[in-house]
Simulated scan of single mutants.
Amino acid sequence: MTGTGKTSQTRLRVRYAETDAMGVAHHAGYPVWFEVGRTDLMHALGLPYRDLEARGYYLMLSDLQVRYRRAARYDDLLELTTRVSEVRSRTLKFAYELHRIDPEGRELLATGETHHIATDHSYRPARLPEDVLAALA
């Protein structure tokens, strides 16, 4: 089953602590930004992680891919688009596009995908409840 097509837009600014001596954002920051976008999308869908966890579910990361195209730099304004790209009873995939926003327009910096498996609090794979699947799909 494919995702809803619903997206979340998250604005971020590259902080000094996220850069190297040349002012270039470190590659390890991109997955952190993806997590921010994913959290925003889950809130927008009415499914905050906190609520899922209270219901007995974790969405554990099982795969992460980042395709770097251009460097983000200190103080760049970024816009991250996050969407659910695939929903199954026990797994989810999220897709990401990260753009730099400036007066001249938008520039694609990176794309990515994360895969997640739903587990119970004992870390055993678990089928997500129908209402959660419906909100995601």
Rank of each mutant, 00 (worst) to 15 (best):
G112I: 02
A95S: 10
S122V: 09
L98P: 06
I117S: 13
S122A: 15
A110Y: 09
S122Q: 15
E107K: 12
R100A: 04
S122K: 14
L98W: 09
L92T: 02
G112K: 01
G105R: 09
T111V: 01
R124P: 10
A126C: 11
R106Y: 10
D102Q: 07
A126V: 09
I101N: 06
H116A: 02
H121P: 12
R90A: 15
T91Q: 10
E104Y: 07
G105I: 00
R124I: 11
I117M: 15
H99D: 12
I101K: 06
G112A: 01
P103V: 00
I101F: 03
H115D: 11
I117D: 12
S122C: 11
F94W: 03
I101T: 02
L108H: 11
A110T: 00
T91K: 09
F94S: 00
A118M: 04
D120H: 02
E97K: 09
P125W: 02
G112P: 03
S122T: 15
H99C: 10
H121V: 14
A110R: 08
Y96I: 00
E104K: 04
G112W: 02
R127K: 14
A95H: 09
E107V: 03
T119E: 07
T119K: 08
T119M: 01
T91Y: 10
H115W: 13
Y96C: 04
K93Q: 12
P125Y: 09
A110I: 00
D120F: 02
G112F: 05
F94N: 00
R100E: 09
L108F: 06
T111M: 03
R124Q: 14
P125L: 06
E97M: 04
R124Y: 08
E113W: 02
A118D: 01
K93N: 15
S122I: 10
T111L: 07
R106T: 13
A118E: 06
A95N: 01
F94P: 00
D102L: 06
T119A: 06
E104Q: 11
L92V: 10
R106P: 03
T91L: 08
D120W: 04
S122W: 13
E107N: 00
K93P: 01
R90V: 15
K93H: 11
F94V: 05
H116T: 01
E97Y: 01
L92D: 08
L109F: 04
E97A: 07
G105P: 00
E104L: 14
R127V: 14
Y123K: 14
A110L: 02
E104H: 13
H121C: 13
R100W: 12
I101D: 08
R124L: 09
R90M: 15
L92Q: 10
Y96T: 03
A118H: 01
L92K: 10
E97C: 07
E104W: 03
P125R: 05
L108D: 12
F94L: 08
P103C: 06
L109N: 02
E107H: 11
